[in-house]
Write a protein that binds this DNA or RNA. Structure first.
Length: 520
RNA sequence: CGAGAUGUAGCGCAGUUGGUAGCGCACUACGUUCGGGACGUAGGGGUCGCGUGUUCGAGUCACGUCAUCUCGACCA
């Protein structure tokens, strides 16, 4: 485990009342847990304190607050464009699925049955005993409805009517939706009973085309994670044990969190003809023969929010990559008694704001006059705003401003002239810096391990272990039982993986290494 | 569903051998402040999770119940 702290002593130095600062530091220490003390608590704490989300009155369900939702919306905007650029269209399918649909595909039902919410009645009535309302027994549904845990079944039942000829293919649809999976234990963003996601569902005439689609979309996710979230990911295939229920192959992007645990951040499934057969979706091919359609599905969820928080956050709060930050620059005026000076500062800030907005940079001027600057600094750091600009009476005289970057907490003084260009460059630099930092951490956390003894020791330290595996589900299961570690993926892309060796657990021969970790 | 813990103001907590509820933060008003989480003064806010019992009297004791959290099993 490793944490980079950002406890800059400059924040304290020079203040004329050290006792007060220390007192306040203590107060904060109580409020915000440090990562090294308790990583889970730090995470939960941060999600709430940074105003991203909170627990709701409904068991296992969260309220995503405006600031958190704004980040999700930015993610949606980028992903939606990427989907459309790769030829997909949005559509919407029902929240409810007839219960019988779920059982059409045997593995699928087995995978999801345990976590489905079921609608049994369509009406309530006043309780005859006077205790509020009860279900109206006469309103029992003929066929019960499942609240979708994922939409393959309802969608493939629909696609049946959309496809008759090879000319109708491919179908490339995506939907933005909520789904419900009744989990035993929940954590904000990482695992909630209801969550938001997108699910792409495509239908193809050939196996090859569907396999290419599966690969294409996992690469879209990897691209998004790396270039927008600034989170490095490993792309690979899931082992049969970890595969999506009903898929022939599941591809995944795996990210590493700062506590050394892995997080599955997105998946893309090659479904073969399983759902086409279950829902009887056939087409006439160019040769005039009847054939089952080939399918894929792929999704990312609000879990990405969790990945974002855990990949970059520090003991001062959230650290947002500029490309996804709802507010990229916050301006804090340092005001005093002189109203003329205060107004001049705010006027300057307004002009900076216009310049920045012309460059497509989002800016907030924090002109709340009942709060002191120090409080605002701390608050915007907690919320992860990439760049802060502060300006007071002295700056006004000198023609300068102070810039602070969230990723390193470094402060610097700049001339007002050309400040928009400086900030634009700084945002780019922050984006690449936090990626570089996360990449360095991730790369340093990948180790090759060749003996079982070493494996048991190393896995407790967190990170990814590259090991030989004999390819059997039994061995994977044993390793999981003894160490809690699972195969996160069989990496597609790594030259280091492809070498002969012997399975770490069984000693049987293996032709390539796979990636193990303890995961969320 | 197995093991453990906790429910007292919006949040975090204290509350002694049972005697009628308090602290910090937050909140409201006014004033002084404002370059790293300000200070003063004055305020407001509670079915002590719920129920039953013991008692003259229950936040406190007993039994029951509900909820939440942590750790397991399950999962994007």
């Amino acid at each position: 485990m490793r944490f980079d702290t950002c406890d800059n002593p400059k924040f304290i130095a020079g203040h004329n009342n050290r006792d007060k600062i220390i007192k306040n530091k203590n107060t904060m220490a109580k409020e915000v847990t440090k990562r090294s003390d308790n990583y889970s608590q730090w995470y939960d704490n941060l999600v709430v304190k940074a105003d991203l989300a909170e627990r709701s009155a409904v068991r296992g369900c969260m309220v995503i607050k405006p600031y958190g939702y704004a980040i999700w919306e930015k993610m949606q905007d980028v992903l939606d464009k990427m989907f459309k650029d790769t030829g997909h269209q949005n559509a919407y399918f029902p929240l409810f699925i007839p219960k019988s649909f779920l059982s059409r595909e045997a593995e699928h039902v087995e995978g999801f049955a345990k976590e489905c919410a079921v609608v049994t009645h369509h009406r309530l009535m006043a309780d005859p005993n006077g205790n509020g309302v009860v279900v109206d027994p006469s309103a029992k549904l003929e066929e019960e409805l499942i609240v979708r845990p994922t939409s393959e079944t309802i969608i493939w039942n629909t696609y049946k009517n959309w496809v008759t000829s090879w000319r109708d293919l491919p179908i490339l649809c995506n939907q933005w939706a909520n789904v419900v999976r009744w989990e035993m234990r929940t954590r904000l963003f990482l695992r909630t009973a209801e969550f938001l996601w997108q699910e792409g569902h495509t239908a193809h005439a050939t196996r090859q085309e569907a396999e290419e689609e599966t690969m294409k979309m996992v690469n879209v996710y990897a691209d998004f994670a790396r270039n927008y979230m600034a989170v490095p990911v490993v792309v690979g295939h899931k082992s049969p044990n970890e595969r999506f229920a009903g898929a022939l192959d599941t591809m995944t992007i795996e990210a590493l969190m700062q506590d050394g645990k892995a997080l599955q951040a997105g998946t893309s499934h090659f479904l073969g003809q399983n759902f086409a057969k279950a829902f009887d979706v056939m087409f006439t091919n160019k040769e005039g023969k009847q054939e089952y359609v080939w399918a894929t599905s792929w999704g990312v969820s609000t879990r990405l929010m969790g990945a974002l928080i855990m990949a970059h956050g520090d003991d001062n709060g959230l650290v947002l990559p500029p490309k996804l930050a709802p507010i990229q620059v916050v301006m804090v005026p340092i005001t005093g008694k002189d109203e003329a000076v205060n107004n001049a500062i705010l006027d300057k800030m307004d002009s900076f704001k216009k310049e920045l907005e012309a460059k497509g940079i989002s800016v907030k001027i924090d002109s709340r006059d009942t709060l002191r600057p120090g409080f605002k600094f701390a608050e915007w750091e907690l919320k992860g705003v990439p760049v802060r600009l502060a300006m007071g009476g002295r700056d006004l005289e000198n023609g300068t401003v102070e810039l602070a970057r969230r990723d390193t907490c470094e402060k610097s003084s700049h001339q007002q002239e050309g400040i928009a260009d400086v900030i634009a460059a700084l945002l780019d630099d922050i984006q690449s810096n936090i990626y570089a930092k996360a990449l360095k951490f991730r790369d340093e956390s990948i180790r090759k391990v060749d003996t079982w003894e070493e494996f048991k020791e190393e896995i407790t330290k967190g990170g990814f272990l590259l090991c030989h595996w004999d390819g059997t589900p039994e061995t994977e299961e044993k390793i999981k039982e003894e160490t809690k570690a699972t195969i996160r993926c069989i990496p597609v892309d790594s030259a280091v993986c492809e070498e002969e060796g012997t399975c770490i657990y069984s000693g049987k021969p293996s032709s390539r290494r796979v990636l193990f970790a303890i995961s969320y």
